[in-house]
């Protein structure tokens, strides 16, 4: 599992309200429609200009605030292929994995990546290559990789239940 994409860089404490405003939480259910509002209150340019395989690079505590899973869903459907941050908020971390959106926690890499550059991430090797350097991060555990490879928690559970039924 690897990804190569253009970086959109943001700061610390990017919260779920600026990623996906609360006023849409119960009125928008189509992921493609969610994507139109991705990062609306932080960077209105983002949803209009973002291309497939984009990589968000951010500071500490990315995704803090609400438990709303749409914060991860809207980014994924907007084209984000991975998020690299100094740290992630707990619920957002779970939500992103469960939506099949891989995350990398790597402080050194964040400090050395600039907005607009193209970076490559290899999740199995735990390696991130950017213009300045190559950075190592602990590879994701097998269980998490399994969820990501299946495209998220729901398809993953579906698969497991089918396997159990077949046994």
């Amino acid at each position: 599992m690897s990804i190569k994409g253009k970086v959109w860089k943001y700061g610390d404490d990017v919260n779920t309200d600026v990623i996906f405003p609360g006023k849409y939480t119960y009125t928008i259910s189509d992921p493609k429609e969610m994507a139109v509002h991705a990062l609306e209150d932080l960077d209105p340019k983002f949803a209009k200009e973002v291309k497939k395989e984009a990589i968000i690079v951010a500071g500490r505590n990315f995704g803090c605030g609400s438990s709303r899973e749409q914060a991860a869903t809207c980014l994924k459907y907007a084209g984000v292929g991975a998020i690299v941050a100094k740290s992630f908020s707990r619920i957002f971390f779970r939500n992103a994995i469960n939506q099949g959106l891989p995350l990398v926690q790597c402080k050194e890499a964040v400090e050395n990546i600039s907005s607009g550059e193209t970076i490559t991430i290899d999740f199995e090797k735990g390696e991130l290559s950017c213009k300045k350097d190559i950075f190592k991060f602990p590879p994701l555990p097998e269980s998490v990789l399994g969820i990501l490879k299946d495209g998220g928690l729901i398809p993953h559970i579906k698969k497991i239940i089918k396997i159990k039924e077949g046994e």
Partner: peptide, 27 residues
């Protein structure tokens, strides 16, 4: 969470007993 009732207009200030004050939080 800006979902219902008591939304704010641009330039307005709300003092609230709630738990979050993120940008756009109250609509």
């Amino acid at each position: 969470l800006g979902a219902h009732e008591g939304a704010l207009a641009p330039g307005e200030v709300c003092l609230s007993t709630a738990n979050r004050n993120f940008k756009g939080r109250m609509g």
